[in-house]
């Protein structure tokens, strides 16, 4: 018994669920539900549909590279049954799942943080550029700034005088 992954949305397909399509070149496409099957028939690209795992991984929404992803994989070879190995594996599964969830949570919080810092940078830049837009009584300008303004105005007047 194998838990397959849906071709379209990458969710797990448990036995007795979903539908399978075998193309005339013997390629197998498995779908977890009719939603995914319909989207396949419409020739949609899973990389462009926002709710699929393929889209989320491609656009950095989900964690992609992690050591916890190395455990679950398709093993196309027979394994001799060993009671101890089975026991250890069963013990390891919940631990691995827990660490993966924690790392994923961290990934998402980091993702959100990045946007916040960028917004703050943008705000600071805007404040620097357009501080004159505020009403004058609200501004607490640094003492050097008015001096600079005065200098510029003086230069302009000098240039005007020269032209005249």
């Amino acid at each position: 018994m194998r838990l397959e992954k849906c071709w379209f949305c990458s969710s797990t397909i448990y036995p007795g669920h979903g539908i399978q399509f075998v193309r005339n070149d013997a390629k197998i496409f498995r779908f977890c539900r009719s939603k995914c099957h319909k989207n396949f028939k419409m020739k949609r690209n899973p990389r462009k549909v926002k709710w699929t795992k393929a889209y989320r991984c491609l656009h950095g929404k989900d964690m992609t590279q992690d050591s916890t992803f190395e455990f679950e994989r398709k093993r196309n070879r027979p394994e001799r049954y060993d009671r101890n190995v089975t026991e250890q594996t069963l013990k390891a599964i919940p631990v691995i799942i827990k660490t993966r969830h924690e790392r994923h949570k961290k990934h998402i919080t980091n993702r959100h943080k990045d946007g916040k810092t960028k917004q703050r940078e943008r705000d600071v830049k805007e404040l620097e550029q357009d501080i004159e837009m505020l009403p004058k009584k609200d501004i607490m300008l640094p003492t050097q700034k008015p001096k600079v303004v005065v200098k510029v105005s003086q230069q302009q007047t000098e240039e005007k005088l020269m032209e005249e």
């Binding site: 899973p46 990389r47 795992k53 491609l58 992803f69 679950e72």
Partner: peptide, 19 residues
């Protein structure tokens, strides 16, 4: 184009182990 392998990698599986 998207393949079954891409779908599996996106689902958090490793590369298939063929021994």
């Amino acid at each position: 184009p998207h393949t079954q392998l891409d779908a599996e990698l996106a689902a958090g599986m490793g590369m298939p182990d063929n021994g």
